[in-house]
Amino acid sequence: MIEIKLVVNEKPYNLNVEPSERLIDALRNRLGLLGTKEGCGEGECGACTIIMDGKTVNSCLVLAAQANGSVLTTIEGVGNRRSPHPVQKAFVEVGAVQCGFCTPGMVLSAKNLLDKNSHPSESEIGVAMSGNLCRCTGYDKILRAVKIAAEEGKQ
């Protein structure tokens, strides 16, 4: 077992993890953060997207030990029913959510884009969201929601 320190959603944790343990498993099984989803296990679908030290990563491709000392944001750390993040609000209002399995990863990719770039162009939005697969919505309303959230941020 390896001892690691993490800050997840602004809370510090000391965890003992297996050398081969993936970050997604540590988040889901040790911390009970089940909003991070596994869709493919090979970094293709983006359902397990989290924000690690300001960058989006596929948590199925990162070893928990590699995250030692990192600051992480999972979906549980973004917004709540009283005060949703503008991305979350836009997703709901525009109708960007269907089955919802890709949604946590989508929200985190969008949030991280807007954190870095409050005035993204349509093509920048497309590129930022292209690592997250969705099989239901055809992306149309997802891309619109990100655009609306960006505009809301500008005001």
């Binding site: 949703p84 991305v87 979350q88 997703f91 109708g95 949604t103 946590p104």
Partner: peptide
């Protein structure tokens, strides 16, 4: 009318339980 889906909120907060959860 364009009623918003009740389940969408749980999904954007990552609260929705799929069977793996």
């Amino acid at each position: 009318s364009r009623v918003t889906r009740e389940d969408a909120w749980g999904k954007v907060f990552g609260q929705t339980k799929f069977p793996a959860d």
